[in-house]
C-alpha cells in the first residue's frame, strides 16, 4: 500500500465516523423535539392524576425531562464514546446488555435471510434473464413483482395463518417455547422458532435482487460478445458462466450489501408479527415507550451495520474486480 491509499482509507473512515456522529445527532434531535410526554405514555393519565407532585417530579427526573437537550446529547455522546451506552429506561438494564441479548436473537435470523435471499434471488435472476421472454422469465418476474408489492408483515401474517394456525406444524411466535426455563431451551427449539420469521424475510428479500439480476443478465445475453460466443457454438451454460456471471456479479454484490438496511427494516415488522424478542421489536417497544437511550443505541448500531456493509462492499470490489485491482497495482 502506498501513502495515497492509506490517506484515502483514513478519509473514508473519517467520513463513516462523521456519518455515524450525524446519525446519532439526528436521532437525538428527533427524539428531543418530540411533543410526546414519556410520563403519559408509560405511566398513564389516570395513574399520573393520582400521584403527588413530588412523585411526578421524581419521574420527570428519571425520564430526563428536566435537562436541556444539548446537555443530554453531550452527556450521552461523551458516555457513548467511553463505551457506556446508558441505561434502558424500560428494561432498567444497561443498554449495551439489552442490545447484546436482542442482537443475539436477531442476528442469525437476519443473516440467514440475507444469505438466502441473496443466493436464491441471484439464481432466479440469472435463470430468468437467460430465458428472457419465456415462461421462466414470466414466472420469476411475476413472483418478484408480487413480493415487492407485499408488505413484509402481511407475508408474515399469511405464513403464520398457514403454518401455525391452520397446519399447526410451526410455533405461533416467540424465540423459545412458552413456559420453558432458559436453561432447557435447545438449539432445535430456537431453530424451529426462527424458521417462519427468516422465511418471511427471505421471501420478500428475493424480489429486488432477482429483478435487478434478471435485467443485467438479459442485457448481457443480447450483447455482441454473447452473439459471437453463440456463433462459436458455445453451450448456454458455458456462455452464462463465462460471460454472464462475471459481468453481473459486481452489481448484484453492491445491491446485496445495500439490502442490509432493508433486511433490518423488514425484521422490525416481522418480529412484531411473531412476537420475536429481537432488535426490531426492541426498537418498536423503545419508540412506543419513549425509551430514548435504548432507541438511540439501536439506531447507532443499525447505522454501523449499514455503513459497515457498504464499506465491506467497497473493499470486496477491489479484490474481485480485476479492473479495479489492476488500476490499484498500476497506481503503485
Amino acid at each position: 500500500m502506498d501513502k495515497r491509499q492509506i490517506v484515502r482509507g483514513f478519509a473514508g473512515l473519517a467520513r463513516v465516523l462523521l456519518l455515524i456522529l450525524g446519525v446519532s445527532f439526528a436521532a437525538f434531535f428527533l427524539l428531543a423535539v418530540s411533543p410526546i410526554d414519556p410520563l403519559q405514555s408509560n405511566v398513564g393519565q389516570a395513574a399520573l392524576g393520582s400521584m403527588s407532585q413530588e412523585q411526578i417530579d421524581k419521574l420527570r427526573e428519571y425520564w430526563g425531562m428536566n435537562t436541556p437537550m444539548a446537555v443530554r446529547f453531550w452527556n450521552w455522546a461523551w458516555d457513548f464514546i467511553r463505551g457506556d451506552m446508558g441505561v434502558s429506561l424500560l428494561y432498567r438494564r444497561p443498554v449495551a446488555e439489552v442490545l447484546l441479548e436482542k442482537t443475539a436473537n436477531s442476528l442469525w435470523m437476519m443473516a440467514a435471510a440475507w444469505v438466502l435471499s441473496g443466493v436464491i434471488g441471484f439464481a432466479l435472476g440469472v435463470w430468468a434473464g437467460a430465458n428472457r421472454g419465456k415462461w421462466q422469465d414470466k414466472l420469476v418476474t411475476g413472483y418478484s413483482l408480487l413480493m415487492a408489492s407485499t408488505p413484509a408483515f402481511f407475508l408474515a401474517l399469511v405464513l403464520l395463518m398457514v403454518f401455525s394456525v391452520w397446519l399447526k406444524v410451526l410455533p405461533v411466535g416467540f424465540a423459545v417455547p412458552v413456559g420453558t426455563a432458559a436453561a432447557d431451551v435447545t438449539l432445535a427449539d430456537r431453530l424451529v422458532h426462527g424458521i417462519l420469521p427468516a422465511a418471511a424475510l427471505s421471501l420478500t428479500g428475493i424480489s429486488n435482487i432477482a429483478l435487478q439480476t434478471r435485467e443485467k443478465m438479459a442485457e448481457v445475453m443480447e450483447s455482441d460478445y454473447v452473439l459471437f460466443a453463440q456463433a462459436r457454438g458455445e453451450k448456454k451454460w458455458t456462455m452464462i458462466r463465462r460471460h454472464g456471471l462475471r459481468n453481473i456479479a459486481l452489481p448484484a454484490m453492491t445491491l446485496q450489501f445495500a439490502s442490509v438496511s432493508e433486511i433490518f427494516g423488514g425484521s422490525v415488522l416481522v418480529e412484531q408479527v411473531f412476537s420475536y424478542p429481537g432488535l426490531g421489536q426492541a426498537a418498536v417497544d423503545a419508540g412506543l415507550g419513549s425509551d430514548v437511550p435504548l432507541l438511540l443505541g439501536i439506531t447507532v448500531v443499525s447505522a454501523v451495520i449499514v455503513f459497515g456493509g457498504n464499506a465491506l462492499a467497497d473493499f470486496l470490489y477491489g479484490i474481485i474486480d480485476p479492473r479495479i485491482r489492476k488500476g490499484r497495482e498500476r497506481g503503485r
Partner: peptide
C-alpha cells in the same frame, strides 16, 4: 444510513 423503518419510527415520534 438509517434503515427506513427505524427512521420512520424516529420521525413519527
Amino acid at each position: 444510513g438509517i434503515p427506513h423503518i427505524l427512521l420512520l419510527v424516529l420521525i413519527s415520534y
